[in-house]
Simulated scan of single mutants.
Amino acid sequence: MTPYPSADFALTVQAADARTLRLAIHGYLDYDTSDEFTPTVDRLLDAHAGQHGPALRHLHLDWTDLTAFDSSGLSALLGLRRRTHPAGITLHLHHQPDYFTRLLEVTGVSDHLTQHATAS
């Protein structure tokens, strides 16, 4: 496990192989920390591609230790989807807190975020 911490946000690599990358988000993904999420995930995706080539097909995000999530976090998550989906990478969301799930449902993006991607 590799942590990428800050005061209120951390990202942990739980597992990786050529086709699958599993990340855990800890703490806040909100206005104050969402600007850390995107470049951190981008670096991890780039490192994975450097090691395995363009084989990644599944990015699993574990939200068990998420303590706050707001519209800025949602924007960062949608930005991640904009990067991964055209590359043929499907997002999988696991263990979301109720408030996270509610925000995805109210905004109507839950199915959009996890729509199956096909490699181009």
Rank of each mutant, 00 (worst) to 15 (best):
L56T: 05
S120R: 14
Y28E: 14
A24Q: 12
P39E: 02
A119L: 11
D70I: 13
R57W: 05
A24L: 01
A10T: 12
A24R: 07
L80D: 04
F37G: 05
A16P: 03
L29E: 06
A68Q: 07
Y28S: 13
L80F: 07
F100Y: 12
V109R: 06
A87G: 04
T12L: 13
G73M: 07
L45W: 05
L45E: 03
D32Q: 15
S72I: 04
L21P: 00
A18L: 04
L78T: 05
A10Y: 04
G108D: 01
L11T: 02
V13L: 07
R82M: 11
L56M: 13
H112G: 02
G88C: 01
Y99G: 10
S75E: 11
W63P: 00
H112L: 15
A15R: 15
E105Q: 13
H60E: 07
D30R: 07
A49S: 12
Q51A: 15
T38Y: 01
L56Q: 08
I89D: 08
D111Y: 00
S120F: 06
Y99Q: 04
P39F: 06
H94Q: 15
H26K: 09
L44N: 11
G88K: 07
V41G: 06
D65F: 00
T64N: 10
T118Q: 14
I25G: 03
L45N: 04
R83N: 02
L113Y: 10
D35S: 15
F69E: 01
L91G: 03
Q96V: 07
W63E: 03
Q96C: 14
I25N: 10
D98W: 02
L77T: 12
D8R: 14
A49L: 03
I25Y: 05
L77A: 08
F37I: 02
L59S: 02
V13H: 06
G108Y: 01
P54W: 00
A49R: 15
R81W: 11
R22N: 06
L45S: 07
T64V: 02
T40G: 00
A47K: 12
A18W: 11
P54D: 15
H112Y: 14
G27W: 04
R102N: 13
L93F: 03
Y31V: 13
L61W: 03
H52F: 14
H26G: 08
A76G: 13
A55I: 01
R57L: 03
L44F: 12
G108Q: 13
D70Q: 10
P5S: 12
V41I: 10
I89C: 11
H85N: 06
L93R: 01
E105P: 01
